[in-house]
Design a protein around this nucleic acid. Structure first.
Lengths: 198, 198
DNA sequence: TGCGGTTTGGACCGACGGGTCCAATATTAG
DNA sequence: CTAATATTGGACCCGTCGGTCCAAACCGCA
């Protein structure tokens, strides 16, 4: 049972990343997941919206395992960790060959417009990333330039990554993603006193 | 004739900004624009897609009149002009009460997924902004820190603004927009040698 | 052998949305 | 005045899509 659900969730996640939520029909999901018919699908999910919410939640979890794992990798210096994190976001995006939606909200930008519940959920995702990064920066607060607000910096980082992802997707340009990311990393280091490895 | 077209274009632009292109039905546009029926609409536009393309083009023009006007305001110092420009993007977004889509691509993120033609058009919009800003920075190249690439910096600025807009929209948070923008301005000045007014 | 969950397959419904067609009336410019 | 253009209003077609319902087969397990 859980098996099939995951299969469907994965298929839906792919499709949503490729075409957006609205553009993805239940029949599309059925086809991609290799189900036999509508009844089969509705055996596992109450509605298309329910599917959407679960995909979102799951996608966040998956990113959590990967992204947040890096942000919490205590063996690395916090600032360095942040850099690795930024690189990993780029990597995630490049992996999907720029087809897919962003690891962040762009994936679900159309979901947000469709349903207030979706919007709130996406907002929470942003919040999670920002908080995590802000916490990281706070850990290294003594090394930050005076007047640097960890929260603001974190927010800026997430915004820049989000924008980069959206633009890279529109322009189908991998180098854009890399470029903005490396600029962002320099921006981060400019807020750090003293040398930063890497 | 042109009168009514513009009326329709404006109504459509509003709706698309609020709900996205796909979510906006032709009937919605008709209602908002105060037309009498489908035939009336199709008297002016060949199809919904055609409408979409024109809205996009027009939106770009309108932003051109406002945003690019600032970027070309030769009475201001180039760097200062850039700052004013950033502020104006924020202002445009705030004006719409955070409801609306971004001045940039987010407005049409779902358009892009729907139609390859849309995507290309949006990519061109980004391109236009970046080029304009890059040109501006080049004018002040002698005042930029060594190793500062005008094009990259321009790209970064646009990406950050785009990301900020998307996030602000999701979180329904005006202060986010202001915060990221002021951080961005500081980022820009950090690339400038010597003092910058403001 | 029998039971519960799973799978298959398809018919079907109602709503919505894009788009066509048409016929009548208003408006306005030559 | 008249002809072109704008406007009104609505009926209509068709495809898509979310969702329901049903009946039969398949499956492992006790």
């Amino acid at each position: 049972m859980t098996q099939r659900r995951i299969q469907i969730l994965d298929a839906a996640a792919e499709l949503i990343a490729e075409k957006g939520f609205i553009q993805t029909s239940v029949d599309d999901v059925i086809a991609r997941a290799g189900l036999s018919g509508k009844s089969h699908f509705y055996h596992y999910f109450k509605s298309k919206d329910a599917l959407g919410h679960e995909v979102l939640a799951r996608q966040f979890d998956l990113l959590g395992e990967r992204g947040l794992a890096i942000l919490r990798e205590s063996s690395l210096d916090p600032i360095e960790r942040l850099q690795v994190f930024i690189d990993s976001v780029v990597a995630m995006q490049v992996e999907r060959g720029m087809k897919g939606g962003s690891p962040f909200g762009a994936l679900a930008s159309d979901m947000a417009e469709q349903d207030e519940g979706f919007r709130v959920r996406i907002a929470r995702v942003f919040r999670g990333w920002i908080d995590e990064i802000a916490g990281l920066l706070s850990q290294a607060e003594d090394r930050l330039e005076e007047g640097t607000d960890p929260f603001r910096l974190a927010r800026f980082i997430v915004a820049a990554l989000e924008g980069a992802t959206t633009m890279a997707r529109m322009k189908r340009d991998v180098s854009l993603m890399h470029g903005v990311a490396s600029d962002l990393k320099r921006f981060v280091t400019s807020h750090v006193r003293g040398p930063v490895t890497r």
